[in-house]
Simulated scan of single mutants.
Amino acid sequence: MTNNNSGRFVQIHALVSYPPSNLNRDDMGRPKTAVMGGKQRLRISSQSIKRAWRESEYFSDALSGHVGYRTKLLGELVKRALVSGCTLSDAFIGLSNPVNPPMDEKTAIMWAHLIANVFAKVKTTDGLKSEQLVHVSHDEILTIDAYLAEIAKEGRAPVKDEPVKPLLCNPVTDVDIALFGRMIADSSKNSVEAAAQVAHPSTIHPVVVEDDYFTAVDDLNKSEEIAGAGHLGVSEYGAGVFYTYVCVNRELLIENLGG
C-alpha cells in the first residue's frame, strides 16, 4: 500500500493466487482475458470484483446498515409496500409486516411509477421495472418510507402531473455508493463520483486457457448394456497469480459521505 499527494490518495497493490477456475466469464462462457506485453493473460472485470466485495461478509459485517441496494425493481417494491401496508425497508428484505393502511393495487401502481421515476425512468412495457439499474441508499429508503406513510394515510391516487417530494439524498451515508459512485441520469447533482478507482485484475504471467472435458455418472444406471456417462460437457478454465490495483481518493470519499 502506498500513500501519496500528502495523504490524499491511498493506493493498494495486491497479488492474489487463484486455482484452476472460471472466475469471470465472457459472452461465450470463456474466462475473460486481456493482451498485455504481447501475451494473453487472465482478467477479472472491475465490475465483477467490486460486486464480490459488496456482497462479501467482510463488507456487510463491517458496514452493516451502510450498504445500499442496486436494482431495477424499486417500483415493484414500492407497489408491494403500498399494497401490503409494510415499509419499503421491509419489502427490500422480503418482509411484509403491515404498519400502514393497505392500498388498492391500481392506485399503488400509480404512486410506485411516480416514485421510481425519480431514480430512473420506468419501462412502459415491463410493469414497474426501471430501464437501468439504480443504486438506492438506506437514507433514501427511509425518506420514501416516510412519504409512503403519508400517501397510505391519505389513501388517494396522485393527481395529474403531481410533483413528488424530494427523495434523493446528497450526500449519502452508504459506503458502497461513496466508494464506487452512482449515476442518476435525470439528476446530475445527486450522482456520486466514485472515490475508488479499481483496475481490472490480470495475471502477472502469460496464461493459456484450457479445456476441461468432464462427465457425470447416473447413480441409478446399473445396466451393463448402457454403460457410460449420464452427462458430458466441456468448460474452459485458467489459473494464475493476479495483480490488483485500487486507488482511493480519501478527500472525495469523506466529501461523498458528508464528512
Rank of each mutant, 00 (worst) to 15 (best):
M183V: 14
I49T: 08
Y69K: 07
E57N: 13
A196T: 02
G29V: 12
A229N: 02
P158M: 04
V175L: 15
D212K: 10
S96C: 06
L73I: 04
A52T: 06
V10G: 04
R80N: 05
E154Q: 15
S187K: 08
E236F: 13
K165E: 13
A229V: 03
W53C: 04
Y147N: 03
D26T: 12
T124Q: 05
G259Y: 12
H205Y: 11
L88E: 05
E105H: 05
K32S: 07
R70N: 03
T203L: 08
C86N: 06
Q132E: 11
T203M: 09
I141F: 09
I109T: 15
A194Y: 01
G37Y: 09
F180K: 03
Y237F: 15
D145N: 08
T124G: 10
K160P: 00
D126K: 15
K123R: 15
A120G: 09
S202M: 14
L15R: 11
N97T: 15
V159P: 00
H113P: 00
D126N: 13
S235W: 00
F59A: 15
Y58N: 08
F180I: 01
I12C: 07
S137A: 14
V192P: 02
V136T: 06
L148F: 04
K189Y: 05
L15G: 10
Y213Q: 06
E57P: 01
F180C: 02
L73A: 15
E140V: 12
I49A: 10
F9K: 08
D126L: 13
L167I: 02
P19W: 09
G65N: 06
E210M: 08
L95E: 10
S84V: 01
K160C: 01
V35W: 00
F9Q: 07
Y58D: 13
P19M: 07
Y237A: 02
G85L: 10
P206Y: 03
S187G: 01
G127E: 04
L63W: 13
S202G: 00
A149K: 13
G258C: 10
S56D: 04
L114T: 01
E224A: 14
R54N: 02
F242M: 07
C169L: 09
A216S: 13
E57D: 14
W111F: 12
I12K: 06
T125A: 13
V164Q: 04
V134D: 01
R80S: 14
R156Q: 14
K79S: 10
K160Y: 07
I12G: 02
Q47V: 09
T71K: 06
L142M: 12
V35C: 01
L63C: 15
M103I: 03
L252V: 08
S46E: 11
R250V: 11
A185H: 00
G233H: 11
R54F: 03
S45E: 14
S21V: 08
A227R: 08
